[in-house]
Amino acid sequence: MNHHHHNHHGEAGFKRKVDYLDRPERSEVLAPEEFLQRIPMEKTASILDLGAGTGFLTIPAAKKVENTVFALDLDTKMLELIETKAKTAELANVKTLEASMDDIPLETSSVDVVLASLVLHEADSLADVLREVSRVVKTGGYFASLEFDTKGTDLKGPPMEIQISAEKLKEELAGFGFEVVQNWELDEGMYVSIAEKKE
C-alpha cells in the first residue's frame, strides 16, 4: 500500500503551511543566503529547487544567479505564490514546474545545482529522487540538502522512521555518483550536506 501524506486541506491549511514554511525561526537556523553561499556556484549556474514550497530558497537563489532557477513542487498554490514573489522582486529567471521530485521534467545534465530543503524525508523513495537528481545534474555540479537528524537529541523533527541521517544520505548519494564535500550540523537537529557529482 502506498501512503501519501500530501493532503491539501483548502485555504486555511495552505495559509498555515505558508506561515510555517516562512516562519522567522527558519531563517535563524539557517538563512537561505548562508546556505546558498556555501555551495560552489557561478553566476551562470542554473538551479533546481526541489519541493520549493514558498520559495524560501528559490527567490534568494534567483537573486544570486543570472541563469534559470526552476522551482519544482506538486502544489500549484505554492508555485503561484513563488511566481508572485518573483514578480514582486522583479526576477525574470524563475520558472515553476508542477511535478514530483522522482519525475523531474528537465533534460538530462541540464542543471548545475539542485537544492532540497527539508523535502527528502517526504519522498516515497529516496533512491528514486536521487536517481532523478543525478540524471538532471551536470557532472561537476552539486546537490545541496538540508535535512533533519534528531537522533540522540530531545528535539522534535519528523517521525524518526522517515528521517534521513547524514550517513544514510551520504551512502545513498554515493550510489548515484555523488561525493559529499561538506557536511555541517545546525541547531534544531538539522544538518546540511553538499555533494558533488563526480561522474
Rank of each mutant, 00 (worst) to 15 (best):
H3Q: 05
H4G: 13
H4M: 10
H4A: 01
H5S: 04
H5G: 01
H9E: 09
G10M: 05
G10R: 12
E11C: 09
E11A: 02
A12Y: 05
A12R: 07
F14R: 10
K15T: 09
R16L: 07
D19G: 10
D19A: 11
D19L: 10
Y20P: 03
L21V: 03
D22P: 05
R23D: 08
R23S: 08
E25Q: 03
E25R: 04
E25N: 10
L30C: 10
A31Y: 01
P32I: 01
E33N: 07
F35L: 04
L36S: 05
Q37L: 09
R38T: 05
I39A: 07
I39Q: 03
P40L: 00
E42M: 15
E42S: 05
K43N: 06
T44E: 06
T44V: 12
A45D: 11
I47P: 05
L48P: 02
A52Q: 12
A52D: 10
F56A: 13
L57T: 06
I59Q: 01
P60H: 13
P60G: 09
A61F: 07
A62E: 11
E66L: 04
N67H: 09
T68W: 15
V69E: 05
A71T: 13
A71G: 13
L72T: 03
L74T: 04
T76H: 12
T76W: 02
I82H: 00
E83D: 10
E83A: 13
T84M: 07
A86S: 06
A86E: 00
K87R: 08
K87W: 08
K87H: 08
A89G: 02
A89K: 08
E90M: 03
E90R: 15
L91W: 02
L91A: 01
L91E: 01
N93I: 03
K95R: 10
L97R: 12
L97F: 07
E98W: 06
E98P: 03
S100V: 05
S100L: 12
D103C: 09
D103E: 07
P105K: 10
L106I: 07
E107Q: 11
T108Q: 15
V111R: 04
V111M: 13
V111H: 03
D112E: 13
D112Y: 07
D112C: 06
D112I: 06
V113P: 13
V114R: 10
A116I: 04
S117G: 05
S117V: 01
L118N: 15
E122I: 11
E122R: 11
A123D: 09
A123E: 10
D124F: 08
D124P: 04
D124I: 00
S125A: 09
S125Q: 15
L126C: 09
D128M: 02
V129M: 11
V129D: 09
R131N: 11
R131Q: 09
E132V: 11
V133K: 14
